[in-house]
Every structure is written in structure tokens, then in C-alpha cells.
Design a binder for these strands. Structure first.
Lengths: 242, 242
DNA sequence: CGGCTTGTTGAAGTTTATCAACAGATGTGG
DNA sequence: CCACATCTGTTGATAAACTTCAACAAGCCG
């Protein structure tokens, strides 16, 4: 496999793409931009927002509530596509904030449609990726609704590991993770204090360690059991693929 | 407006469709089927599941957890499309259960693709509907993560009312609702007992009544305020529409 | 160094779950 | 059409999970 973008290699892992299609994909990365951590790239209500393909760094998608709290819907890591729904609606329905310094390629609606019309298989691949993201949101919803704090946290860390492994940024034993406990809390629907206690429990039980920007998985089997983690929603076969 | 299916009239409310396109949409309703309440139409893991357009009755999409609890991801009402993601993955990633007796039209992947290739605008319209459903799931996630039981319940009842109104099954003052408190609990991530208490509070405060299969909204403004209900995620303008 | 964010821990308070009991409604077979 | 079983709704008492407040330590950045 050549030196592809994380995006192309992620899609390629699920839908067989020709070299030509891969090249077309990589050509989407023209308008490369850099965003500093902490300042929103897209904000709720923004008209005609752009979509992006994330090349490096992490971002989060979130919504603010009237009381000043926020809920993070998901994190995006290198290779992820973001803002597709907002482009379709011509209005952003959530905020997007870089968690770290981020490099991303802006994708205009017109470019995307043009690429799709040239190679319908790419349209299918992107639709597949969008569906996978939706499946992750659903699993997130299920976790917040029916898993307790410990199961939920364990599940989150496992899912993240699985996603990072796919783009070569982690292994079964651990990965680098730039998330603060505050961010974790806003994603998991918990208070930061409680996240801290849960992480301590997981650490003291010898399951996972999350310290100094690294997640170390010490007992994968026990963690999977605790979290009731079923990976199938992440690695479906490609859609309608020959 | 002629005597269209709820599905056609829902799409038509957001994307201007010609009579010809409307007719093509209605033609999808060939394989009409009836399902009794309570027995799953689709179950998680099922291979090559069908998609359906709901003509009458209510269904819920849910996932089961290892502990025996379940989380309902959303309810579908007449006019809603269901199972699109499962068709794309060729494997169902959630269960679908009729809440009432249901009439639905089975839509085969091939029929759908054929219709889309004839009229790309219909593909756009369906994609719009799917994105709207995804936005609802996101809002649901936000509610479970960061709203307390009362706000969450109020928000749910308002959203349902808004959706039902769109297909002519409700008004600003109320609607028929076949959901039990158990179903509500599984959707809201609460216990049935607590749902009961919350409904009582809402009733005693003169905001909403949910009794005998009807939701009566007595003080819309106060309810909207309490739930922090912002309808915009439900009625975006059509996607890329001319 | 000094200021700020992040992580950590204890104590007290709130929300929500669980258990249990019963009433009312609904449905089924005899 | 009644008798019985089963689901749904209701309420009280108790327990568990999680939040909030507060204080301080540790890391990070200008």
C-alpha cells in the first residue's frame, strides 16, 4: 500500500478501491488548512459550512444546552470525514472544536459531488463511512442511556482504540490520547469528578490506565467483558460491495 | 395536494417534488405488509434485512444489552423510512419492533436504487430524510447525556408532537400516543417508575397530560422553555434544493 | 517564577433506581 | 360472559449512583 492519506486507507480497508479511485480521493485534499486547538471550526447555526477530511489532530462535535452544559456527540480522529450532514442541510446543527492543533482539508460540496459522479463507487464508500459514524452515535446513545459510568467509560476507551488501530495510530495494548477528563466527561454525560473516580477504579482493578496522555490497556478481555463491547458495529463489510 | 402517502407528503413538505416524482414515490408502496404489535420485524444481526416505509402504526428501533436492559434509539411514525442503514450494511445493527399493529411497505434495495437513478432529486430527498433522522438521534443523545428526567421527558413529548403534526396526526394542543410508560422509560434511559413520577409532576404543574393514550399539551410555552426545545433541527430547508 | 488549566480527593446533597405492594385495564380460554 | 392471568400504571420506602462544592496538588505555558 502506497503512502495514502488516512482517509483513503480507511475507506480502502472496507471497500476495494482501484489505484485510480485512491488517487481521486487523495486529490480531495487540496485546500489544506490548519486550526489551532480550542477555537471552533464550525458553530451551530452557521450558514453554508464546509465539510472537512481530518489529516492530523483530533476534533470533537458537540452541542451546547441553555444551562451552559455541553454534550459531545463524538470525536473525530485522522481519516474521519466531518460536517457531511451540515453541508447537506446548508446549516450546521452542531459545533466542531479542535481538541488539538488540527490539519484538515476543506471539501466543497461541488468538489464532492463531482468526484462522486466520476466514480459512484467512491460515493458508496463515503456513504458507508457516514453510516458507520451514525452507528457509532447510536452505540454512544445506548451507552449513555443504559450503561453505568464504569461500563460506559470502558466502552468508550475500547471503541477509541479500535478506531485508532484502523488508521495505524494505536494497537491492542494502547494509544496516545489527547483528551482531558473534562472532555471525557462532556462526551460520557458525567461530571469531570466522577470520570476521575471511574478512571481510578479501572486503574486499580488493573484493567486500563489513562495517564499522561496515553491509554494503556492492561487486560483487554476483562475490559471487553465489563463494557459488553461488541465490535461488529465498527467493522461491517462494505455496502453492496462486489 | 392529492391523496398522497404520508411518506410522499412528508418529503414533499421539504423538497419540492413534481407530480411525476410523487407518483414514483407512491409506486414504492407495492409490497404492503402487516405486522402485529410486539413481534420484531427485524432483529440485530439479521442478514440482508429489508427497509420499510411506514404507512400506519408505530414502531421502535432498539438495542439489547447483555444485562437484559434495552435502549430504544427512536420511534418511527407513519411516513418514516426505516432500516436504511441496515440495508446499506447488509446486516441489521439493531432490532425493530412494532409498538402497535403496523402496515408497512417493504422496499428492496434494488427498487430503491432504480428509483434513485431515474430521479436523482428523490435520492436527495431520501438522503435529506435520513439526515433529519440522524439529527434526531443526535438530539436524543444530547438529551440523555445532559438533560434531567423532567426536561428530557418534556423534550421528547414536544419532538413527537412536532413530528406527528408534520404528517397530519397531531396539533399544537395534543396527539394520540400509543406508548406505554415502559417504552418511554426505555427510550429516555430512565426506569418506568421514574417516568411515572415525572409525568405526574408535569401533569400537576399544568404543563402536559399523558393519559389514556393521549398527550394533551396545556402550556406549550412553558413546556418549550422547560425542555429548552429548539425546533430547528427538525425543519431545515431542503438539501441543495433549487 | 507566576498564573492557569488539569487532576485528585473528601464530604454532603440530589437525582434516579430498586424493591414491593396493589389497583386498574386488557386480553384469553373455558 | 365470567374467571384468571398478565400487563400497565401508581405510590411509598430504601438504596445506589452520580453531582456539587471545596480545597489542594501537579503539570504546563508564557
Amino acid at each position: 500500500m502506497a503512502n495514502r492519506s488516512p482517509f483513503a486507507s480507511k475507506l480502502g480497508a472496507f471497500v476495494a478501491l482501484s489505484d485510480e479511485e485512491m488517487t481521486l480521493l487523495d486529490r480531495l485534499h487540496v485546500r489544506r488548512k490548519v486550526f489551532p486547538a480550542g477555537r471552533d471550526m464550525v458553530h451551530e447555526g452557521q450558514k453554508n459550512p464546509s465539510a472537512y477530511i481530518l489529516a492530523s489532530g483530533w476534533v470533537c462535535s458537540y452541542k451546547l444546552l441553555s444551562g451552559g452544559t455541553r454534550q459531545i456527540v463524538d470525536f473525530q480522529i485522522p481519516g474521519d470525514f466531518l460536517g457531511l450532514r451540515s453541508v447537506l442541510f446548508r446549516t450546521a446543527d452542531h459545533n466542531i472544536e479542535p481538541v488539538t492543533r488540527v490539519e484538515a482539508s476543506e471539501v466543497l460540496a461541488t468538489d464532492l459531488l463531482e468526484t462522486f459522479s466520476k466514480t459512484p463507487r467512491l460515493a458508496t464508500a463515503v456513504l458507508w463511512a457516514a453510516s458507520r459514524d451514525e452507528a457509532m452515535v447510536v452505540e454512544h446513545l445506548v451507552g449513555i442511556g443504559r450503561r453505568d459510568a464504569k461500563e460506559r467509560t470502558a466502552h468508550f476507551l475500547l471503541e477509541l482504540g479500535s478506531r485508532l488501530k484502523l488508521v495505524g495510530l494505536g494497537s491492542a495494548s494502547g494509544y496516545a490520547c489527547p483528551l482531558s477528563q473534562n472532555l471525557l466527561a462532556d462526551a460520557l454525560g458525567l461530571s469531570a469528578v466522577h470520570v476521575n473516580r471511574v478512571l481510578r477504579e479501572l486503574r486499580e482493578e488493573g484493567l486500563v490506565t489513562f495517564q499522561h496522555g496515553r491509554v494503556e490497556i492492561h487486560d483487554l478481555d476483562a475490559l471487553v467483558l465489563l463494557a459488553d463491547f461488541d465490535q461488529t458495529y465498527l467493522d461491517h463489510d462494505g455496502p453492496l460491495l462486489k
